[in-house]
């Protein structure tokens, strides 16, 4: 790796998965989003080293990988708490009470949008429409959907994520 970027290596399982992904598309570029998802699962964060390795594995210009990673909200380039709460703030959820949940998360967990709890357990990210409008307010914790939220229900849900 150039420029002092720490080299990373995919596991053998991940390498086989990448081969499988590549077989589904006529171009290597089309494998970029799936491989970034895989890399994020494997390494947790898409660090500079991970991004460089992805570019190398797919034979893509590093700038393309950088551009794509920064474009999509679900790709992480910075470490977060152990669990990420994506709280929907778009209109239907807002009408259903997102703001009261924000107040609750602040009071109970000292958790503000963009922040992480002192114990590193939760990071709070404000999300735009999650497609849970009919049963809002909705949130995603990691990849799990939770809806019909009230402050009490939020506490119940978060209890499961240690």
């Amino acid at each position: 790796m150039e420029g002092g970027v720490k080299a990373v290596e995919f596991s053998e399982t991940a390498k086989r998965e990448i081969e499988k992904i590549l077989s589904r598309y006529p171009t290597k570029g089309a494998a970029l989003l799936p491989v970034l998802h895989l890399a994020q699962e494997e390494f947790g964060v898409l660090t500079e080293g991970v991004r460089a390795r992805v570019a190398q594995v797919l034979d893509l210009p590093p700038a393309q990988v950088e551009g794509v990673v920064s474009f999509y909200t679900l790709f992480k380039t910075q470490p977060t708490g152990r669990h990420v709460i994506w709280l929907c703030q778009t209109l239907s959820c807002d009408l259903a009470g997102t703001r009261s949940l924000l107040g609750h998360l602040d009071r109970r967990y000292s958790l503000k949008p963009g922040g992480t709890t002192a114990d590193g357990r939760f990071t709070l990210v404000m999300a735009e429409c999650l497609g849970g409008c009919g049963t809002g307010p909705a949130m995603m914790v990691n990849w799990d959907y939770h809806d019909r939220l009230t402050p009490e229900r939020v506490d119940e849900v978060l209890e499961k994520y240690r």
Binding site: A30, L33, T73, L74, F75
Partner: peptide, 8 residues
């Protein structure tokens, strides 16, 4: 093939 987006 099912292709997963990444938030956009």
């Amino acid at each position: 093939v099912v292709h997963r987006g990444a938030g956009a």
